[in-house]
Design a protein around this nucleic acid. Structure first.
Lengths: 298, 298
DNA sequence: GTCCCACTGTGTATTATTGCACATTGTTTG
DNA sequence: CAAACAATGTGCAATAATACACAGTGGGAC
């Protein structure tokens, strides 16, 4: 029978992609990891990784093995904690895919607190506005704008958030005063690139004004934000970003606002993996604490 | 972190109770098992076994560890089968506690078929009519006469069975002819030892005749059976035993019969352990095939 | 195009684990 | 009560696993 310990080498290599990185985490030599993976592949008569000088990537067989190994690891951690009495320190890497605005601002700004709570968990933040596949392990956790409708995932709503229309002071001073929604006609706007929008929930400028005159488009939220600061136009910005910045003035805030939701999504197989669970709990609690800010209530 | 392989030594020792027996099963030296258990106890800072020259017995900590280790073993077996393509031959020991009659006859007579199906599973049959505790691992599977009402167990009904009153030809020839139930008065009977009966379901002679004249008592079903053959009295015998023996004549079979049930009981934690599951399936199917015989329908 | 860096693979020395031989202990049998 | 048997524990040799040193390869930067 194969060596159960080899599964620990397998797990770490699958998470880190490189022998030397996995070896460092496990406090062994990279040659040991290489040999143990080779031994495991030999015992199981299956190729678990596609190897290249640039790293190791899981094959289909490796992907199929992964949930079992993770379950064993979860059991191992539970038994260690329960029998030895010592808290088996949560450790390992968790990859989180989150919308750029949320990830780069709210989550990134809470990393200090997270690391205090879980010093051995390495949180990798993929802050992009494109879809990620959890079943292909592109991420362990995803934060989406809508509840996923298919796949072996578990999801729950994290929070609501609000966007409002903002303009820089310099822009507002040098353009016609806006006293009602009709007054927006003739103004310039900043927005996403329509045909590169991957989530319908990001199409919200059309709800504010018909046929907006867009002078700048970007897929990058930070680029849009900075362009707004640069006084080239108005844009719909997340309240949790803009309200912290006195340079941005909300435009008709009582009339113009878009509400959206954030959802936390985890693959079913990872739900009970301790470090994934720890990250989920942290995110859930953090965004509960941020409720008012997310909604633009100051 | 502790060596995951040590858990395999732990599992085998917990099942077999002796270093040398566990070592034989694992194809290692008994000193290896001894040292690996010592290493595991040291790592977990817990005593897992009470040691004596006569063997090793699980402590409370060991009992608490057991389900986790078994889960890991279940995961390991599943992944091996699924990834390597090879059927990880079901192996290991399963201890079955069954009522003596059922165990020693029906089950024992089907061991050939069972071993053909599962050559690496060692089925240990504890054929006794006393209660066994599944939570203390006195057995992995129990067959009982009634559905258990408490405990973290899973149970389902295996089958119904029937007992009838039988007498040996020699006894019947040398005693008053029995043409109705009233005619039983004055006859001799063989039965259990009343104050040593541990299950109310075994008290059935009282249902047939009030104040029976019992000339021989035993806790052992086979002893009762052989005494009946020896023509010292009448006894209520399981149809699945007696109907195969032309030496036993049923007495008033249309009027006198007792119906009982067999239940299969497994501890919740073992339900998904592959070899336990295999035994459960085998028993369930076997007793389904034996339905007519169990009920005395020839 | 060349050099540097990061990473993997291989051979060998070192260290850890396991098996062997045997002593010790407790139980059973005569 | 003594001898035999079964099981565990210990010391040391043999074997296996791991670390170390270094070669080879591929990609990126200049």
């Amino acid at each position: 029978m194969y060596d159960w310990n080899d599964l620990r080498f397998f797990l770490e290599l699958s998470r880190r992609g490189r022998l030397i990185s996995a070896a460092r985490k496990l406090h062994v030599d990279h040659t040991t990891v290489s040999r143990r993976i080779a031994a495991l592949e030999d015992e199981l008569n299956a190729r678990l990784f596609d190897k290249s000088p640039r790293g190791y990537k899981l094959t289909d067989a490796g992907l199929r093995l992964l949930p079992f190994a993770e379950q064993m690891e979860a059991q191992s951690n539970q038994l260690y904690q329960q029998i030895s009495g010592k808290d088996a320190r949560l450790s390992g890497t968790v990859r989180l895919a989150a919308p750029e605005a949320l990830g780069a601002h709210i989550i990134a700004h809470n990393m200090g607190q997270f690391r205090e709570m879980h010093p051995d968990i390495e949180l990798e933040l993929v802050a992009e506005s494109r879809r990620t596949s959890l079943s292909k392990r592109e991420a362990d956790i995803a934060i989406t704008l809508a509840r996923p409708s298919t796949g072996r995932v578990i999801a729950w709503k994290l929070c609501d958030y609000r966007l409002k229309l903002y303009g820089a002071e310099k822009y507002l001073e040098s353009h016609p005063k806006i006293s009602n929604i009709e007054g927006l006609v003739g103004h310039d706007f900043i927005s996403y690139i329509d045909d590169l929008i991957q989530m319908p929930e990001l199409r919200f400028l059309d709800q504010v004004i018909k046929d907006p005159h867009v002078v700048f488009r970007s897929t990058n939220v930070m680029a849009q934000y900075n362009a707004t600061l640069d006084s080239i136009g108005l844009s719909l910005v997340h309240c949790f970003m803009a309200d912290q910045d006195p340079r941005l003035i909300p435009v008709l805030p009582e009339d113009i606002f878009i509400d959206r939701e954030y959802w936390l999504v985890v693959h079913e197989d990872l739900r009970h993996v301790a470090r994934v669970d720890a990250v989920c709990r942290f995110l859930t609690q953090t965004l509960k604490d941020y409720h008012n800010r997310m909604m633009g209530h100051i």
